[in-house]
Each structure stands twice: as C-alpha cells, then as structure tokens.
Design a protein around this nucleic acid. Structure first.
Lengths: 204, 204
DNA sequence: GTCTATATTCCGATAGAC
DNA sequence: GTCTATCGGAATATAGAC
C-alpha cells in the first residue's frame, strides 16, 4: 500500500474527489481538471466512469442532499418526550454539520439555481406530512406543557438555529476570532445553548 | 421617455442588470452576455465601463454586502429598551430580506469562496466591538429582566432566525406549499413569531 | 460612447493508442 | 481501464469602425 488512496477503487476515488470539489466550489465553479487531480487520475477517466460533469454532479448532489435533509418530521412525530425530541434533533444535526460544514451552502445553492427541478427530486412528488407535526404540538399544548406555535414556524426556528452558523461560518469565525478547531468547540457548546433557547421559549 | 430605462445613464443600467444577474447566478454562473442583454446594450460596452467581469462583480458585491450586514451591534448597544431593540431589529431586517430575498445566499456564497479576502474588505481590519453588546446584555441580566446569555450566541440566534428562511426559500415554499406572495406573507407574519420566540426565551 | 467583428483563453468532451 | 492528444464550443476580452 503506497498511499491512502491506492486501495480504493477508481470510482470511489472519483466520488470522493468530486464531493470535495463540488461542495467547495459548486457546480459552476468546479473544474473537471481539479477533480481529476484530486483523485489522482486524468480527465478522460472521469468521462469514462460518469458520462458528463452534470451526471457526476447529480450523483454527488443526491448523496449529499440526503445527508442534509434532517429527519425532523419523523423525529417530531416520534413518541419520545417532546423536549427530548428537540434535544436529540439539535444534537444529531449539529454533529452532522460539524463533520460537513460546507454541506448546507452547497445544497441551498444548487436548490436555488434549480428551484423546480431538484426540490422535487429530493422528496417524491408528495407533500411533506407537516400536519402530523402540528398534531404532535397541539397534543403538548393541550397537556399544558408548551405554548401554542405553528409547526412550520417551530421547524423553521429549529433548523435555522442549527444550520445558519455553518452557512455563515467565515463571518462567524471573523466575529468570534476563532480558528477551525475553536469554531467547532463553539458549535459543540451551541448544542446546549440552542436546545435551552428553544425549550425556554416554548415552555409555559 | 420611451421606457423605464431610457432615462437612466448607461452605467446605472449596467449596475442594475449586473446586480440582478450576479445575485441570481453568482459570479461563476453569471454571463456577461446576460448582463448586456438585460441592460439593453452589448458586451463590449460592459468592458468599456468596467474593465473586467471581476471588477464589475466587486462593485456589485460590496454594494450588496453593505445591505446584508445588519447594524445588529449598533442596535443592541443603543439606548432603546432591550426587548424593543430586538423587535426593531427583526422587523427591519426581515423587511430588507423580503425586498432582497436572494441577497443572503449571494453574499454567503461569495464570502465562502473568498474567505480571507472579502471578509476583511467588508469591515476594516478592526475587530467587531462585540464586547459592547455583552455589556448591554449583562446590564439587563443584573436588572433581573433576562437570563444570562453569551452575546455571540444571542446575535447568532437573532440573525439565524431572520435570515435562514430566505436562504432556504425554495425548500420553505415547497414544504409550506406557497407561491411568492404567500411566502412573503409568511415572512411578514414571522416578524412577530420570531420576536416572541426570542423574548419568551430570554425573559426570566 | 456605442457598435460589430474577432482574438484569446478556458474547459468539457472525444478519439485513439496501449 | 487508463492514458495522451486534440477537438469544438463557450465565454471573456480586445480591435477598430462609426
């Protein structure tokens, strides 16, 4: 084994390199040459494995999109205690983002450039079952545990608080004067902060 | 006056068109031809007024960046009542975003691609005076009005809750099944929701 | 200042040898 | 399967007439 990559299949090396380049530069900014270089092969081979840049991109995008879309609806409609659902969601989601800090910007960028096409390719054509979330909330309201709130607004709040700091990572690092490791510490600490912020707001 | 644009200077027409195309497509995705078409002129004239695509982009970027960076620090250190500061910030910021929904993604994208260069071009080299915000918060804590919180985390929360829905606008529209006008209504309603959400969380 | 026409560079994609 | 060499188109940028 000469280096770390030599025991991986060529296809795996390409996918790994493509993920890195696409998530950093976006579809338009990425260069097939860069992907080839990073994978340690040449351009022609990229076209041999994946017909075109667009095809390669689509593979990467769908793979990453699945990672980005949190199972927030499933989680909020599960049978865990309500506040525990929130804590779990925040914890898991921020952990994913610490491991994949470029993910949110990558996904949102491409969804915006391709609004109608991609948004529906991620989910099926079906509507998201947001009504179930509203029922779960209303149940807690009736029990007198939380204040009334719209399911959409609550989900927006939860996702916003988790994701935005990563979208604005360079700005946050500038304002907080932190390096990468310190930024991750900050986000680790933020798990508790966000959970507390949400629960304190909901609690009656 | 034949049309709306005929009484504007050529430079103004270019800037207007460039803003529209760059904010929609980003630096890499934008085409000089598209900008020329939208401005009602030809490509050569773009280079006559601005030397290159990059130069033109920089003008647009700096102009838009100023709009995006909210005066959150100034606002939080002003002498308004504390909860009123929050309400005002949310109201003003979401209004700006309703008028410029593409602004956040545009800015964050380019800041990320150019982390070191642009972040410092926006502000001067100086550190942001976040310490003043912490003092303003601590004062309210001592008065017994709010719970203790880090200035950075609070500012992150406030900005996250306002900005993220616009970054994820296509996804939000899909989930909430809304058209543009309905989305704007949703964001208008969100002003009160976000203000309430933040204040409920901070209040003792 | 504004245009048409053209030069130049870059990049995705293909051809063909091994 | 993998490579080198090259094509062909697209996009930025320039030259030069008006």
């Amino acid at each position: 084994m000469v280096n770390k990559k030599s025991d991986k299949s060529t296809e795996e090396k390409i996918l790994e390199a493509a993920k890195a380049v696409f998530t950093e530069k976006g579809l338009d900014g990425a260069r097939m040459q860069d992907i080839a270089d990073k994978a340690g092969i040449n351009k022609a081979l990229l076209h041999y494995y994946f017909r075109s840049k667009d095809k390669l991109f689509e593979v990467i995008f769908l793979e990453q999109a699945a990672k980005f879309m949190p199972g927030i609806i499933d989680m909020l409609t599960s049978d865990m205690p309500f506040f525990q659902k929130i804590e779990k969601f925040v914890d898991v989601y921020i952990s994913v983002l610490i491991e994949n800090p470029l993910l949110p910007l990558f996904i949102l960028n491409e969804v915006n450039k391709n609004a109608q096409g991609l948004a529906k390719k991620i989910w099926g054509g079906g509507k998201p079952p947001i009504a179930g979330v509203q029922q779960a909330i209303d149940k807690e309201v009736k029990k007198g545990i939380i204040k009334p709130i719209s399911a959409l607004q609550l989900m927006l709040n939860m996702v916003s608080l988790c994701v935005f700091p990563f979208l604005a990572k360079p700005l946050v690092q500038f304002i907080s004067q932190t390096n990468n490791a310190q930024f991750n510490q900050l986000m680790e600490a933020r798990k508790k902060e966000v959970t507390k912020f949400i629960i304190d707001s909901l609690r009656k």
